[in-house]
Design a protein around this nucleic acid. Structure first.
Length: 132
RNA sequence: CAGCUGGGCCGGAUGGCCGCUCUUAUCCGUCGAGGAUAGGGGAGGAAAGUCCGAACUCCGCAGAGCAGUGUGCCGGAUAACGUCCGGGAGGGUGGAUUCAAGUCCGCUCGACGGAAAGUGCCACAGAAAAUAUACCGCCUUGGCGGCAAUGCCGGGGUAAGGGUGAAAAGGUGCGGUAAGAGCGCACCGCCGCGGCAGUAAUGCAGCGGGCAGGGCAAACCCCACACGGAGCAAGACCAAAUAGGAAGGAAGACGCGGCUUCGGCUGCGGAACGUGCCGGCUCGGUGCGUCAAACCUUCGGGUAGGUCGCUAGAGGCGAGCAGCAAUGCGCGUCCCAGAGGAAUGGCCGUCCUGCGGGAGCAAUUCCGCAGACAAAAUUCGGCUUACAGGCCCGGCUGCUAA
């Protein structure tokens, strides 16, 4: 691939099953940020980095919740993920995420992902994704 | 033109880059999953609230009754409705008219069957609230006081007036009377009777009756009619792993001994056989078994998961015909979201509309901000609620012009 990498977010990079969410909530660790809370849990193979979102009904109506989820998903998509490490991540937005600047959200997600990579990943994996 | 108001309609437009989802074609890959390229589709008028009605699915179902729930003027529309359309009666309001009650016309409102089947309630106020009632007043009369005006105590008549109330026992006018009263008369209302008009609700005029029956049924209730229950997480199919269930398959020659009801049972030794594990295979090692456990095969239920249900429909659009209308009929034409921790997005540009500010006599132009409410979740028909801004038609009021 060339220097303009296509940043995608396909189905197998997403968390889709109720059991997966439950496991991350019950056994995972937590990272807090201004606009979100990030839950994460290391997993056995297959090797990929999966992300899911939970937006509870208390945060607003369907329109508001959709907008939060879509902004978060876009931030995760544009940031890219290190598929060398096997980990499940669940992001819970807070109410302030609705009005926050998009670049601010991207910064917070990036910080959280770097933390997870330092913990579970190896340096080679990260450099690979940056050299793409 | 401005304000208020009734009804209908629209609900920003367009493009770039990067994504998501469904789908068609081709190609790659294939045990299974998947991937690439190109083309096409991808939120609403309320998708919402889940308040009604249906389609569809499963369960239940001899028949009848009770209970319960809902509906409630009449006719029509419809698959159906608590919806819609038309009509009737009633309430409110404005105008005209009448001595007045009332009548007529316009606009408007809504759970509009029954209060002479029964029960219950009617606060406060008021003398009295349903077997009517005498507080003030009005009329009359007895006694006492006083020259008198009239005062005090008592009897009787009276529902016209006052006052209270949501409501005071037909209303208005005239007559009548001691004062009054349907006591009498006229009109209006009411009740009964038959007549005429209308599919009907109901209306109209007539005759008879002085008039009996306060309100609340969104209090219980009575009457008439309708109604089985649960819902697409309905339901149908495929079906791993694990545990459990059912059926079937397969392997001891021989030696020595014990017991015996002479069929067998059993202990020890033991080449052999079956089978699990280690192992690429043989050999080998090792475990278990060989009167049925392990093991193998098959079957049924069934969980995770998957597929279907899942979008061609009481469908949209167009003109026509029938009907006052709701709506119906045939014709032409189009195919228009189908996700499932849940796609329909993110960022940026141009234009449009509105608001604010600046420049200009003005047309105009520059800058900034804003563009609502609310997102499919099986599908339709309604109802209700939310909503920036704009468009169209009508009514009333004011101003200006003719």
């Amino acid at each position: 691939m060339g220097p303009t990498v296509r940043k995608r977010f396909p189905r197998n990079s997403r968390l889709l099953r109720h059991a997966d969410f439950e496991r991350v909530y019950k056994q995972g660790k937590r990272h807090f940020a201004a606009h979100m809370t990030v839950f994460y849990l290391e997993r056995e193979a297959p090797q990929n980095f999966r992300v899911g979102f939970t937006v509870s009904g208390a945060l607003g109506g369907a329109v508001v919740r959709n907008r939060m989820r879509r902004r978060l998903r876009e931030a995760v998509r544009l940031l890219g993920r290190n598929n060398e490490i096997a980990v499940d991540v669940v992001i819970n937005p807070k109410k302030s995420l609705l009005t926050a600047e998009f670049t601010e959200i991207q910064q917070e997600v990036k910080k959280a992902f770097e933390l997870i990579e330092r913990k579970y990943g190896n340096a080679r994996g990260r450099s690979e994704i940056e050299s793409q």
